[in-house]
Amino acid sequence: MQRIQIISNNPLIVFCADDCFVSAESVLPVLLKVRDLVHLGHHLLTHPLAGSLKPNENPYRSVVVTKEALGVDYQSVQLVEGAIAVSRRMLSEKPYRAWSRAVLADLQLVDKALLASALESLGKDISI
């Protein structure tokens, strides 16, 4: 089975040794970390723009990439660069609101639910 790593800034996620927690309250640092990995040859396994909450609405994002560098995958590069461009544009137009802690917890929950849906599809343990 394919080995994976999760790149995320969502504190609700239970991280494994292979995963990478990005300490930031914004999707951009997560996407930039993913981009670095993609350019090093890791392949995207989930779309970097998950969910219908826009990158300037939900600051939490979890992306799954291959654990191993398999050689640069053009589709992964294109998707992550596109996601970064959309996120930058939307954030410059409308930055994050100062959400309450309760709302932030719900935003984390939605990100976690989308990640769980992806992990289930990838045949992974979803007790994240």
């Binding site: 396994l45 989930t46 779309h47 998950a50 589709q75 849906s117 992806a118 599809s121």
Partner: peptide, 8 residues
């Protein structure tokens, strides 16, 4: 319209 690229 799923989350993973393999599903897509």
């Amino acid at each position: 319209e799923n989350v993973t690229l393999s599903d897509k």
